[in-house]
């Protein structure tokens, strides 16, 4: 009897866990949808910005702007983008592993996401900036805040190079860990230049000066959006797997339960039969 009770209790507990994972899966799916829409919404701006920079770069000397200046990388910063929350498979741990492999010592860390802040904060790394809890209400202001700070440090030569590690959103079930260079900005690939001759006010160079910091903010914004979508995708997949595993466990346990129940009934019948034979 006691084993029956134990099994019944285990089934109930697995079922309630499954309810939670299934709910989380559905929440992640809804958030993923929203995150993907945000990526879509940012696209017109990104495309236009790139066109404009391309047409400005050919009209000015692109090397004169400080954000494009390439220096000997003595002081490097790495911006590490993790999520704020766990239960999303290897989303955060992949980033952390990649970041530790990329470090050569002496880099400053710019941490985005609570998980990265928790991990690197405790281990004596040189943490310059922490941005945790921004993904819940992600807005362009978050990107601007990071961008303006980097812009200032880079132009004052406090930093010579800024690298970026984040999860790129490929599809709902695929994320790639990407390591790329954020600063110096790579001069835009010159595609077919816009043939229109504009009147620039005050001058093409001044307009370029105003646009490049915007471009930096936009890069950061794109990365935050990508990482956010990737996180939701990863969580959705992880929770789907957890729900399936729970289902399998429930089925096995139910089988055990039925076997045990049958065994008990058989034993009881045998007892009764034995008893009635004894009475005769």
């Amino acid at each position: 009897m006691s084993t029956l009770k134990v099994i019944r209790r285990r089934i109930a507990s697995v079922k309630s866990t499954q309810k939670i994972t299934r709910a989380m899966q559905m929440v992640a799916a809804a958030k993923l949808h929203r995150a993907q829409m945000n990526i879509e919404k940012a696209r017109p701006y990104t495309l236009k910005l790139r066109d404009t920079i391309a047409s400005l770069v050919i009209r000015t000397d692109p090397n004169r702007h400080p954000l494009l200046a390439v220096r000997e990388p003595e002081k490097t910063a790495i911006m590490i983008v993790t999520g704020d929350r766990g239960l999303c498979g290897s989303f955060n741990s992949n980033i952390i592993r990649k970041a530790e492999a990329a470090m050569q010592g002496g880099e400053e860390l710019i941490l985005v996401g609570k998980k990265g802040v928790e991990y690197f904060g405790k281990r004596g790394y040189n943490v310059a900036q922490k941005h945790s809890g921004i993904f819940r209400y992600l807005n362009f202001g978050n990107a601007t805040a990071i961008g303006e700070m980097l812009n200032r440090y880079y132009c004052e030569q406090e930093l010579d190079r800024v690298l970026l590690i984040y999860n790129e959103f490929k599809s709902a079930v695929q994320q790639y860990v990407v390591l790329e260079q954020l600063l110096p900005l790579k001069p835009a690939e010159i595609g077919e230049a816009n043939p229109v001759e504009y009147i620039y006010e005050p001058s093409a160079a001044a307009v370029l000066d105003a646009i490049l910091p915007l471009n930096l903010n936009m890069q950061i914004w794109r990365v935050l959006l990508e990482s956010n979508a990737a996180e939701q995708g990863a969580r959705m997949t992880a929770m789907e797997n957890a729900t399936d595993a729970a289902q399998e466990m429930i089925e096995t346990l139910t089988l055990h339960y039925n076997k045990a129940r049958q065994a008990t009934i058989t034993r009881e019948i045998m007892d009764i039969v034995g008893g009635s034979i004894g009475m005769e």
Partner: peptide, 19 residues
């Protein structure tokens, strides 16, 4: 609000770019 002061634009303006 342009960087060189406020400006207004009507239809058929010449190609123009400003911050």
């Amino acid at each position: 609000p342009g960087s060189e002061g406020q400006f207004g634009v009507l239809a058929n303006h010449a190609p123009f770019m400003t911050s």
